Amino acid sequence: MSPTPVRLVLASASPARLKVLRAAGAAPLVSVSQVDEDAVLEGLAPGVPHEDAVAALARAKAEDVATRILADDPLPGRAVVIGCDSMLSIGGELVGKPLTPEVAAERWRAMRGGTGTLLTGHCAILVEDGREAGSAAGTRATELRFGAPSDAEIDAYVGTEEPLQVAGAFTLDGAGGWFIEGIDGDPSSVIGISLPLTRSLLAELGVDVVAVWAGASRTS
């Protein structure tokens, strides 16, 4: 018997996350959360573990989108809202998007030749029959070994503007890949959304990943 199709809703504007999901056979809707990330972080207890911080951000994003879907535009059948957040844990500090060229260049000069842990928090919320039917959350950690680009290479990379809007000021699947010596963990997590973790969270909600493929086929 074929599974009942389930539609994914990605609570993120990240083109990299969308690309990963599409390449993996999903056809998610995109509904960008309106969460104030700084406010969420400021509301956490002092010294909260880095893993818990990114999980809290992911949950806030998923809940924001799920709430708006249920209030304004209920989806027919079953859907799962996926919220994600990625930050780099390095030198005892948790860092997100650098946003400015100056910060991006400073971070690269500090982390070149070193290592860091990319943390990606995920939250999945099942929406069914006009109500929230369950949620599951988790975090995936991937160790990174950074290369040692020269000052000129760092300046050129920052000049592309690619690192300004990505966690930790680097990508794995873009120009930043030139400066990543290796990773220990899940590559899709570094790009922005961990497929293995997402599959596990779906399973916690009673959703088989095959149902997500079926949902994509129905809407393609």
Rank of each mutant, 00 (worst) to 15 (best):
C84P: 12
S33G: 02
A214E: 15
R199I: 10
E128I: 08
L18Y: 04
G147H: 01
T219D: 11
S188A: 00
G176H: 14
D184G: 06
H50T: 05
D72E: 15
H122R: 10
G25E: 10
D85T: 08
A58P: 09
A27K: 04
A56E: 03
G114P: 14
A13M: 02
R109T: 07
L18F: 02
A53W: 02
V9H: 05
K97G: 04
M1L: 10
D208T: 11
G134A: 01
S189R: 00
K19N: 09
D184K: 02
E106L: 04
L70R: 07
L41H: 11
T139P: 07
A214K: 15
T100P: 02
L8T: 07
I69T: 12
A23F: 06
S31W: 02
L99K: 10
S135T: 08
P46F: 08
F146L: 01
L118T: 12
T160D: 04
T67I: 05
A56W: 15
I125C: 13
G92Q: 08
S89P: 00
S33H: 03
L126I: 04
P28N: 08
G192W: 04
E181N: 11
P3E: 06
D151N: 03
T171P: 00
A60W: 05
A71T: 13
S194K: 02
L118D: 11
M1P: 12
R131K: 10
I82F: 11
A141H: 07
L119W: 01
E204D: 07
G147V: 03
P46A: 09
P5M: 11
A26S: 15
A66I: 09
F170G: 07
G96K: 09
G177V: 11
A55Q: 05
A79D: 12
A24S: 04
V127D: 03
G182V: 13
V30S: 06
S135Y: 00
V20K: 05
L144M: 13
A16Q: 04
P3T: 00
D173L: 12
A58I: 04
Q165H: 11
V20T: 12
M111E: 10
V54Q: 01
E93D: 02
E162K: 01
E93C: 00
S89D: 14
P3Q: 10
S217A: 14
G83R: 07
E181G: 13
V209R: 05
G25K: 10
V20W: 06
R131Q: 14
A79W: 13
A110K: 12
P28T: 14
L172C: 13
I191T: 06
G25W: 14
D155I: 06
E63V: 04
E204F: 00
V210G: 15
P3Y: 04
C123I: 00
L75C: 08
A216P: 10
E181Y: 13
R112M: 05
L205H: 02
S31D: 12
S189I: 03
P3C: 03
G47W: 03
I69W: 03
G176M: 01
G91Q: 08
A214I: 14
G91K: 09
A27N: 09
I183N: 01
A175R: 05
S2D: 15
M87I: 04
S217G: 12
D151E: 00
T67D: 12
S220R: 15
L118R: 05
G206A: 09
L8Y: 09
L99H: 02
